[in-house]
Design a binder for these strands. Sequence first.
DNA 1: CAAGATTGAGCCATCAATCTTT
DNA 2: AAAGATTGATGGCTCAATCTTG
Lengths: 171, 171
Amino acid sequence: VTTPAFPPDRLAAWRAYLESSQRLLTRLDDELRATSDLSFADYHVLLLLSEAPAGRLRMGELAARLIFSPSRLTYQINSMQRRGLVVRESCVRDRRGYEAVLTPAGRDALRAAATPHLAWVDQMFLNDLDEAEVAWLARIFTRLDSRLRATAVGTAADTPEEGREDARDHG
Amino acid sequence: VTTPAFPPDRLAAWRAYLESSQRLLTRLDDELRATSDLSFADYHVLLLLSEAPAGRLRMGELAARLIFSPSRLTYQINSMQRRGLVVRESCVRDRRGYEAVLTPAGRDALRAAATPHLAWVDQMFLNDLDEAEVAWLARIFTRLDSRLRATAVGTAADTPEEGREDARDHG
DNA sequence: CAAGATTGAGCCATCAATCTTT
DNA sequence: AAAGATTGATGGCTCAATCTTG
């Protein structure tokens, strides 16, 4: 392929990052499913809910943090509710909205999965990095994250509490 | 089960990496679809074929490089064949096998997509990194990739304590 | 009407079963 | 029998349309 002006070392770094990340994510999901009957999506939902006050989060907020589309989250929460990991409750403050709420069973499932999962991550990735590498990793990807947030489609880079979203000429 | 006392800075680095990578991959795919009518999977197939001798690769080899399951690749190639980007040909040396072959239209599509795609990657990620960061990125992820390859499913894998269960009762 | 969320149709991905060739 | 690849059923994800509340 013809990519004339691109510095080869940057391209090589990009491709190494891209390929190993895809491989890592795939294996992560396989490992989680094999040891805990949880997908990576399940795990991530449980993790975010467990860190939220009262173990509950608005659907939209949860979707934004997971980087899920609204309908994907609806599907995901339905599936988890069927399995007893979360329940969906109508929101009192704003009756348009719903909240996903962590159940005791969900908390147990997360607790059970977390230790082997983190051990796997450590063994597969983190443990192999020295202090300097960890620092560079954090530095590079923290900056990437702000860059991506700053250029989001309907952006307001800094809206910690509630909705952002801008529906332009859509409907 | 021993709980590994997890250093907070390592955990933070891991989560920054994980979240921004997911965000990046999502946006990458959106951007590609918007500017070229190619998904990231399409693009990756075209890229690998364009780099292969005679623009052709065995299905299994291609699947392994893309980190795709065999049936996912079959589906993907069917879709791309329908759109004229590749053709599937029976393999002469080993008649069990098939090869995916890049068409001229496929090569054109890749050429057209590559420049804006790489420009996007540069603007969103690479351009923001200095030389040292690029070097660390390549170093970290090249090593991760070999680590992941070395512990692939077929090879004598050392998984974290907690023997691998055979959980196949649920799809 | 705009925003939060869900629904339905259709596309994509996975698992197990199958077919062919070695 | 084992390896390469595809098929069919099923589950997961996206888009556009819809319903409800602000």
